[in-house]
Amino acid sequence: MSAPIRIGIVGTGGIARVHADNIAKLGDQAVIVGAVDVDPERLAGFQAEFGVEAGYGSLEELLAQGKPDIVHLCTPPGLHKEQALVALAAGVDVLSEKPPALSLAEIDELVAAEQASGAHFATVSQHRFGGRAKWLRERLADGRLGRPFVAVCNTLWYRPDSYFDVPWRGNWAIEGGGPTMGHGIHQLDTLLSILGPWSEVVAVSARQARPVATEDLSTAIVTFENGAVATVVNSLLSPRETSYLRFDFEFATVELEHLYGYGDDNWKITPAPGHEEEVEALWAEGPHGNSGHAAQFREVIVAREQGLPLPVETASARRTLELIAGIYASSFTGARVATGDIDADSPFYTSMEGSGAPWREALVAAE
């Protein structure tokens, strides 16, 4: 039996607790060897709650003294890239919370650092790893549901003004964007993992109500290389919260409705007339199982044991970030954006705000 993977947790806020809870589900496959936080009191509370003996004030101390095999970045988004570069330079694998970087330029830096170090960088995208998401990817591959025609990808969440009292929220420089970047990325990533590469996007974003520099609402129409077309809504203004994905295939509609995580009961399939028998037989096959961090962590361990890139690998995470950049670029310029359009000459390559949100001047004037 292999020795347990040695995990270091960087940042000990709310998402770090999700990581620690799910690492515990791995049993003797993994152990937390240390945690890092700049707030000693918060760090001590985390250590006491999860039985973590070693606490550190910096990532560098963790790497030097804790000797982790992999670090989990549970810090605010604006810190992910620099922390990942430090760990990769030390030859240590990285699993970063979303978003992994604030721009395409930053993710490209991580790709280069990963290649130079030989260590692996991966992004947490836990909704990819539920059983039914895997089942749908298999159906795209074998074509047994027919061609994909239409999709819906909605992140309709609610965040009050007080949510943005935390300084880095709603801030381009630290969070990287609004719900398109920080919230809708969950469903967008799952959509792309199922339907495959996108080819073009046209979008609208708005700052309707929240006291933020970023958007609080975006909508988009995304065309995929396989011909499917998806509508996307990302909102922090929706009192009845839901995360909703719908895929209309030639022979069936498949739907997922949940909030922050799903099980088999959150999925529904509706056969097209005349295809009931074969679709119901397909649905009964599985695979089954909940989404969640533990499901992805297990896949990470398997990949490490086999010497493979860790899921979700940088190339795949970059495709999701490129779509997000495309949504902002289309929203702020009014243009249709195709894959590959946002290169190093584009202002949207180095910042999701790019050429500037339409409401920026009004915000500056108000200040």
Rank of each mutant, 00 (worst) to 15 (best):
P4I: 09
G8S: 03
I9W: 00
R17C: 14
N22K: 02
N22E: 02
G27L: 11
V31G: 00
V31E: 04
V33R: 06
V38G: 10
R42I: 07
A44F: 09
A44Y: 08
A48L: 11
A48Q: 15
V52G: 06
Y56I: 00
Y56V: 00
L63P: 15
P68T: 03
I70Y: 02
L73I: 00
T75M: 10
E82M: 11
Q83K: 14
G91M: 12
G91S: 03
L102I: 14
S103K: 06
A105T: 03
L110F: 06
A112L: 13
G118S: 12
F129R: 09
R132M: 10
R132N: 14
W135N: 00
R139L: 07
G143D: 09
L145P: 01
T155Q: 12
W157Y: 10
R159F: 14
F164K: 12
P167Q: 05
W172M: 02
A173Q: 03
G176Y: 00
M181F: 01
L191T: 01
S193A: 08
S193T: 08
P197G: 02
P197A: 02
P197Q: 05
E200G: 02
S205W: 02
A209V: 07
E215G: 11
E215Y: 14
D216P: 09
L217Y: 12
V222S: 03
F224K: 09
E225R: 13
V229P: 03
S235H: 12
R240S: 09
T242D: 12
L245F: 07
L245K: 05
D248I: 13
A252T: 04
T253Y: 02
V254N: 13
E257G: 05
L259D: 05
L259G: 01
Y260W: 15
G261M: 11
D265P: 05
I269D: 03
A272D: 08
H275C: 06
A281G: 06
A281C: 07
L282P: 06
G286C: 12
H288S: 12
G289H: 12
N290W: 05
H293W: 13
H293Q: 12
H293D: 05
A294I: 08
R298Y: 07
R304W: 07
L310E: 08
V312H: 04
T314P: 01
S316P: 00
R318T: 11
R318G: 07
R319G: 01
T320D: 07
E322T: 04
A325S: 14
G326H: 00
Y328N: 15
F332P: 05
R336L: 00
T339E: 13
I342T: 06
D343V: 03
P347M: 10
F348I: 01
A357L: 07
E361M: 11
V364T: 15
A366E: 11
E367Y: 10
